[in-house]
């Protein structure tokens, strides 16, 4: 159980670092000579996974965040659920809910994306924010339980193989 909590805390720390990096990209870019290259590197890294269109992003200090509104909402929604889980239950007690909830939570975002691309609606910021948070917030419920189970299983297998000495 202690091991499961440790794995969960590592996951929480990694997701927090990821979200901090999204916020840090504009702050570092507007900072001094030393921080600017790090900010640029973060922008470049995030550009591989997001269009980073200026008009579709939140801004800090006059600069866009590392990723767009929709992506930011998904990542911060993911982080919020990870923190929420700590307050309402313990990670090892978490069980994967029925799969239809996942599709139900993702549906508004998919509808928003498709209807925007079809030119039916303009996908306002609030729509991107709400549908993104909803999608991001549900994902940990489907990723965390198998992840914890998998890491425990891999650790046991390594123990059996004599590859780990705890």
């Amino acid at each position: 159980m202690e091991f499961t909590n440790r794995v969960y805390n590592i996951l929480l720390a990694l997701v927090t670092i990821w979200c901090v990096a999204i916020l840090a990209a504009p702050l570092l870019t507007t900072g001094g000579e030393v921080s600017r290259p790090i900010g640029s590197l973060l922008y470049e890294g995030f550009s591989k996974i997001c269009h980073q269109i200026e008009a579709r992003s939140f801004h800090i200090a006059g600069q866009k965040l590392g990723v767009c509104v929709r992506c930011s909402s998904i990542y911060f929604g993911f982080l919020a659920t990870l923190i929420f889980i700590l307050f309402v239950t313990s990670p090892e007690r978490l069980r994967t809910p029925s799969i239809q909830w996942l599709f139900l939570a993702l549906a508004p975002m998919i509808i928003d994306v498709l209807s925007y691309n079809a030119g039916i609606q303009s996908s306002p910021v609030m729509a991107r924010l709400i549908t993104g948070v909803l999608a991001g917030a549900i994902l940990p419920l489907y990723i965390v339980p198998p992840l914890l189970e998998a890491v425990v299983h891999i650790r046991m297998s390594l123990h059996k193989a004599g590859g780990l000495y705890a």
């Binding site: 591989k48 996974i49 994967t96 799969i99 996942l102 990723i143 198998p146 992840l147 998998a150």
Partner: peptide, 20 residues
């Protein structure tokens, strides 16, 4: 960049596949 990002998201996809 690819060798850092793709395994992370590939792993998350694998776990989502398991959940589905």
């Amino acid at each position: 960049f690819g060798v850092i990002i793709l395994p992370i998201f590939g792993m998350l996809g694998g776990l989502l596949g398991f959940a589905i």
